[in-house]
Simulated scan of single mutants.
Amino acid sequence: MALELVTGYWGMEHVTAEQDADLNAGIIGSGNYVLNIGEKMRAEAVSANQVRIFDGVFMAYGRQCILGDGEYEDITIENGTPGLLRNDMIVVKYKKDEESGKENATFAVLKGETGSVAKDPVPNKQDIRSGAFESEVPMYRVKINGLAIEKIEPLYSIPMTNDDLSNRVSELDYKRSIISTESSVEVNSNHNVVSRSGKIVYYKLQLTTKKEIKSGDKIAQFPNFAFPSESVPFFTIALAGSRLSRVVGNVRITGEVIVYDTIPLNANVVISGTYITNN
């Protein structure tokens, strides 16, 4: 086998369902999902032995199944037994014909055992990507109490869209502040910031020394929200004229920025980094 260009022109049809499924699974995941669109394949009991599934998109192993906008499908559940419990399972049943290779998917019901305690039936959830010719992917658990459908429980997850993720990031605890510096350095305020989003802290100091900085000197102070859980080391270069010199230091758990090398007068230094804090 050799590398194959999928999204490219060959002069013939060549993209397969397997390749499309791999792309879906790589982006969304290979589990069983209902996408966040339309009615999201919600289910409701319309009678004592019938469940209606509304429009949406179901995906498993990257394979996409759809009920179009405004469509629905009714699924028959076998009647329950008075005074007893039963769990049935609505699955998406995948089949592939071994001779022709044709594939299809349908809703099916796996009947559970009737008794004083309800137990789930076991679906034949085989890996389609590995070549399975049949697979039963769980979608809903239907809890039957006596003659009534008591509850319908989803057995899939709904992945977040890119919009969902963007909104979630913007809702994170975001803080930003100018870094306080000592009189021994002069800073460019546009490059003198520390910010925190969730537990991630990013900082950048762009400064020029106004006097020689000695080993152990403090040059800046971070605000409380940016205190690290443990000392965070940094390494950078100081440029004084044509002379380069090494600068190492750390951000202490008290927020103090300390250097451990001598930095000459009028040296330009950029210190930046990212760390995770539990404070």
Rank of each mutant, 00 (worst) to 15 (best):
R86H: 09
V34H: 00
A132V: 04
E78F: 10
A60L: 03
E71V: 06
I66N: 11
V57A: 02
Q64L: 15
D88H: 07
Q64M: 15
G101C: 08
Y94S: 00
L147V: 13
E103K: 11
L155I: 02
K143F: 14
N124T: 12
E44H: 09
K125Q: 14
K125C: 08
V109E: 08
I158E: 05
E44A: 13
R63T: 00
S130A: 13
D69H: 15
I149L: 08
A60V: 06
N49K: 11
E98Q: 12
N79I: 07
G115S: 10
A48C: 07
I90S: 06
K96R: 15
F133Q: 04
V57D: 00
L35P: 02
G56C: 04
V137H: 03
P154Q: 06
Y33P: 03
F133G: 04
G38T: 05
G56F: 03
A132C: 05
D88V: 07
S47I: 07
V51P: 02
A132H: 02
K96L: 09
E134G: 01
T106N: 14
A48Q: 13
K119T: 15
I128T: 04
S130W: 00
A108L: 03
G80W: 06
M139K: 03
S157L: 09
G62L: 05
G101R: 10
K119P: 10
E153F: 05
E136T: 01
E113L: 12
L84R: 13
T76F: 12
A105W: 12
K40R: 14
N79V: 11
I144D: 03
N79T: 15
K93D: 12
N124E: 13
V122D: 10
D74C: 06
F58D: 00
I158A: 03
E71P: 08
F54M: 11
N124Q: 13
Y156W: 14
M139C: 08
K95M: 13
I158M: 09
E134N: 02
I90Y: 06
L67M: 12
I75C: 07
S135L: 01
F58Y: 09
F133C: 04
L84Y: 13
G131F: 01
G70K: 11
G70N: 08
